[in-house]
């Protein structure tokens, strides 16, 4: 019996699936082999866990791992806090609200490299606008990017500056999904503005918080270009993260070690993001 063809033939998936499989999936799977080899792109020699052992023995590589975690949690936490505050402010009907939303959001769309170079100039230890400004009011500004203990945090600040607009946008969408009835009911119950914020806004805007945290954690753990544009991981290795370690090892020709760094990054993202989405989606069900 001849079967008529479906109106939805499977080959529609094919072009996209081929591109995705060859250029994303295959390398990802292959990385789990190459991470255990000494590799020069032409021949790979299996060396077991040596790359990983070396990774965790080198202090500067371990520091890269810690920096990744600090950077990711710091940026996602601050983006979420400032994003929510800005969103509340920018939905309260203040003067020039539309303009302010635009201003806050625009940096999201601008080239990260451009932003990085600009802030590197603004944070210049002697000539930079920030320290010149601080000097005017009698404070001796630190070397924002030249001090090993400060560089990572300075970059995290720029990341916040650039990314808070997206968090704000998501929170604005989340806030506008909250029915005004809740606020009216809370006011009738005698809640102050602060109580309304803590008891109504914060719990009800939770889906947006989950989104902001997840997105900015994933972004933060993977971040590379801002750091690379501002300090290249320096001074020393003080602002190196996993992604910049991967690039540096690649540049030096340690392809196996570089790929091991990549695998560590996968695992890190998996053990942070997977339980997080699981936890959040579960609690949502129980509410």
């Amino acid at each position: 019996m001849r079967k008529p063809k479906s109106a939805y033939p499977y080959w529609f998936v094919l072009p996209g699936a081929v591109i995705f499989t060859v250029l994303f999936l295959a390398p990802t799977v292959a990385s789990f082999w190459f991470a255990f080899t000494r590799w020069d792109l032409y021949s790979a020699q299996f060396i077991g866990l040596d790359n990983f052992v070396q990774f965790f023995k080198e202090p500067f590589l371990v520091q890269g791992l810690w920096n990744t975690l600090i950077y990711a949690f710091l940026t996602s936490g601050t983006k979420s806090i400032f994003g929510l505050l800005l969103a509340v402010l920018l939905t309260s009907g203040i003067w020039a609200q539309g303009f302010l939303r635009t201003v806050v959001f625009f940096p999201v769309l601008v080239s990260t490299i451009g932003i990085g170079i600009t802030f590197a100039a603004l944070m210049h230890p002697t000539k930079g606008l920030i320290n010149v400004g601080l000097d005017q009011i009698g404070i001796a500004g630190p070397g924002w990017l030249t001090s090993a203990s400060l560089a990572l945090y300075s970059i995290a600040f720029v990341d916040l500056w650039k990314g808070v607009g997206l968090a704000t946008l998501i929170y604005i969408a989340g806030l506008s999904a909250i029915s005004p009835d809740y606020y009216e009911a809370a006011r009738i119950d005698g809640a102050t503005r602060l109580q309304q914020f803590w008891r109504v806004t914060v719990p009800l805007v939770r889906p947006a918080t989950v989104t902001v945290l997840t997105l900015s954690l994933i972004g933060g753990l993977r971040s590379f270009d801002l750091i690379w544009a501002m300090t290249k991981g320096g001074p020393g290795f003080s602002s190196d993260v996993l992604a910049s370690v991967v690039y540096k090892q690649y540049q030096s020709g340690f392809y196996g070690l570089s790929t091991a760094g990549n695998v560590i990054l996968f695992v890190l993202i998996a053990i942070i993001i997977v339980p997080m989405t699981y936890l959040f989606s579960r609690r949502e069900v129980h509410q």
Partner: peptide, 12 residues
């Protein structure tokens, strides 16, 4: 979610 595995991608 997953970041691309860069060096293996170059290899491919």
């Amino acid at each position: 979610i997953v970041p691309p595995a860069v060096v293996p991608t170059i290899w491919v």
